[in-house]
């Protein structure tokens, strides 16, 4: 199969710990199969700067925590056929959202002002502006497939991606759960 006709595949890392991407790498030798089946067009694992057009499958790890995340998501949604919320942070906002009950201001004050005796200041230049709450991906854009798990196991990822590439709808909840 030529590179042109392969499904175009992407992964994205928002506010999360990269554990889901690590679990993705745990698929070991199946990664070679996958590389044969898809063209990886965008990912923290490959060196591409801009998210391309016409992507078939995008895995999104992490919750939505900043305006930059929102802008990325809106763009990626417009350019992706099947968008997958990949792992608990993308599905529920999970650990990143543990700051939500306290409010952003209190958290920033605690971390950057109260805990830093030498140069207390809140970074607000260059770095993306944070949202007052971290929210799951589907609060911003439509999600097609949810893969709960913290992280989803390599087997789960393989099964879900494998089913999708085979043109079938995976029964995700038979494979994984929140916190799995």
């Amino acid at each position: 199969m030529s590179e042109r006709n392969k499904p175009r595949f992407a992964t994205l890392w928002l506010d999360g710990c990269s554990g889901c991407h690590m679990s993705f790498l745990d698929m070991d030798e199946w990664l070679l199969d996958l590389a044969g089946q898809v063209e990886v067009v965008y990912s923290p694992l490959v060196d591409t700067k801009a998210f391309p057009e016409n992507v078939d499958i995008t895995l999104i790890e992490g919750g939505v925590a900043s305006h930059e995340d929102i802008e990325k998501l809106l763009k990626i949604r417009a350019r992706t056929k099947t968008l997958i919320a990949f792992g608990d942070c993308a599905v529920t906002a999970n650990v990143p959202a543990m700051r939500n009950p306290f409010g952003l201001e209190a958290v920033m004050k605690q971390v950057y002002l109260d805990s830093d005796a030498i140069q207390p200041q809140v970074p607000n230049l260059i770095v993306p502006q944070l949202l007052d709450r971290v929210v799951p991906v589907h609060r911003i854009v439509k999600v097609d497939v949810y893969i709960p798990g913290c992280p989803p196991s390599a087997r789960t990822i393989k099964a879900v991606v494998g089913e999708l590439l085979a043109g079938r709808q995976p029964d995700v909840m038979a494979l994984t759960r929140f916190g799995a």
């Binding site: 608990d88 529920t92 999970n94 650990v95 959202a97 543990m98 939500n100 913290c150 929140f178 916190g179």
Partner: peptide, 10 residues
């Protein structure tokens, strides 16, 4: 605030 990943009964 249910965060299964860090819960004692996960």
């Amino acid at each position: 605030n249910h965060v299964c990943a860090v819960c004692v009964v996960n």
